[in-house]
Design a protein around this nucleic acid. Structure first.
Lengths: 344, 344
DNA sequence: ATGAAAGCGCTAACAA
DNA sequence: TTGTTAGCGCTTTCAT
């Protein structure tokens, strides 16, 4: 049945019905007699007919397509989010258009591309956009939900977790361990997440009468985090605690600390990450980290986007979910306190 | 300029030109006077006009869209491939439609979906399809390239690496190390890759007068590989060498061997993987593995798909690239041979 | 170089 | 229930 393009007209002709009868037969809600539908389906099968989704989209002005935008999949946290969210939308009958943010900051072209492609919604994964870009999309009435990044321009729904409190907890935990040379390994410098985690971290240190001993930037990437760690540990006085703005960088730091500087984690250096990606729990790493409720984030984000598409939710939402500390073996045991019994 | 839908007619009216002039102005190849184009662009900007890609696709019958199909992104190897290939197509001006294979074997619905969406090509990542499914797509003259899986039905281009020789090398290497209880950790049982690696592995063992000591299945997944490893090491006689059909499973095996059975890799057990994903080189794992030339695979696959789309390459290609052994520290040093000098 | 007109393949009124 | 008709927004002849 190899034919270049079988249209509903061809099917109609073969089935001896009108072209609109064919259209109706392929619409689940339309009312067609069983007899007609059967004839149509038979003819369709014989010709190998498939309704042309593009033509349908043009007239219904609904593409049933959602754009997902991400900047990289190096971090397994985001490939996980991508897969989960995609499967969700796929189950809901949506198609997924995937966009990668280009290396530079030239994001406008992608925004333009997204608008032209007539998607019904946009899901952004950790994409930092500025307010003019946000406005460009909003002006086209395309619902947008952004995961794990906040943008100052209102009008865009955001789902994230409590980065500030996460950073604060990290500082408190390291301080309570009795450490004093605590360093921060930052993510992408212009990302809201890294900024908020840092802020909470600094405030937490201050609360314990400490200041940040050193700081470097790993751009949320493995390689960059390795370089940053080498710099931190080439200093005259090396850190005894590190808070990295995500797990990937935390693991990179541990690799370097252990295998290049021959120091022990956690005996010489305690390390804390952020995300709790699956790998963080692998025994080799056993990384103490802040768990982002990723399933809940995905659920909220996808449902929110769908609600906005269906018009049942017009106000943008700003959802901040709590993070949960996962204490594992990359941080040392707390300093000995007075025992519970009578003092010795 | 928030308007629900600005069409080329609206722009034409404002610019005082015909609708076709607008269309031409947005087509790089069309011949329009500079004056007209300027007027049009001005009006377009003022109204916030964006050409409707869907309408364009309908008439040009070219969607400039490619479908990428994958079954999971748990394995970083595939998120890497996905990202690289996507960026390539994006740079070539194509859109990417992302499909995940459903959990069960019900792949027909996805195939149907892909055909209906009028994509110009399909890139399958490690997707096992049967010949009827392959035929369904081929009948619609949609070019397909499969990465890392072979399908028996001809007519579909395939890009992979030499799984058989990889398996053979793994067996030889372990045998040369003087090991004798060598086990195989299989991937997805119905995948061609796992089968071919196993075949080469078994033949390699036989060549050295060995047989496979034990075998289990890890489905290419981390968790399943952990379970499989536990079973292998709960046996009366435990393996002293393992060849896993991919890196992810090999690393899982090492985690279990080291941290649950307190054995040493490589002193007690040597482990070999397949893929050489970036993580394999991390010092903690330092996994001996077979490197798949992933960049080359992506390049070949994307170029091949493009060539088929443009009609310059009609015959399906079957490309098998060589793999390269990467010897790291998860396999022990070779057994001492007679020294190069005079025998002691 | 420009405008008028004819569709691309489909859905959705409207009649019958 | 069915067929007829009118577009969806665009590209592309064909005259001018």
């Amino acid at each position: 049945m190899k034919r270049k393009s079988v249209t509903s007209r061809d099917v109609a002709r073969l089935a001896g019905v009108s072209q609109s009868a064919v259209s109706r037969s392929f619409s689940p809600t339309a009312k067609v007699s069983e007899k007609t539908r059967k004839k149509v389906m038979e003819a369709a099968r014989e010709l190998g007919y498939r309704p042309n989704t593009i033509a349908r989209s043009l007239i219904t002005r609904s593409s049933r397509t959602i754009a997902v935008v991400t900047y990289s999949l190096e971090n397994p946290f985001y490939s996980f989010v991508l897969e989960k969210a995609s499967r969700f939308f796929q189950e809901q009958g949506y198609h997924l258009l995937l966009f990668f943010a280009p290396p530079g900051r030239d994001f406008d072209a992608v925004i333009d591309d997204i608008i032209k492609s007539q998607v019904e919604g946009v899901l952004m994964l950790a994409i930092t956009i500025d307010s003019s870009q946000a406005k460009a999309v909003a002006d086209f009435d395309i619902p947008v939900v952004i995961i794990n990044r906040t943008v100052n321009h209102a009008g865009i729904s955001q789902v994230g977790s409590d980065n500030y409190r996460g950073g604060y907890w990290a500082a408190s935990h390291l301080a309570t361990l009795g450490l004093s040379r605590i360093a921060f390994l930052a993510g992408l410098v212009d990302s809201s997440t890294s900024g908020q985690r840092q802020e909470g971290f600094f405030d937490g240190l201050e609360e314990h009468g400490l200041t940040c001993h050193a700081m470097d930037v790993g751009n949320y990437r493995y390689d960059d985090a390795c370089f940053a760690t080498r710099r931190l540990f080439s200093a005259h006085v090396v850190p005894d605690g590190i808070f990295a703005a995500n797990d990937l960088m935390a693991i990179a730091a541990m690799e370097i600390i252990r295998h290049e500087f021959n120091l022990s984690v956690p005996d010489d250096v305690s390390v804390i990450g952020f995300d709790d990606m699956p790998m963080a729990a692998w025994p080799s790493h056993s990384l103490t980290t802040l768990r982002q409720p990723v399933d809940e984030m995905i659920m909220k984000a996808t449902e929110l986007l769908l609600a906005q598409i269906h018009g049942s939710q017009t106000e943008p939402q700003y959802i901040k979910l709590p993070v949960a500390p996962m204490v594992r073996r990359s941080t040392r045991r707390p300093a000995r306190r007075s025992p519970p019994g009578p003092v010795a």
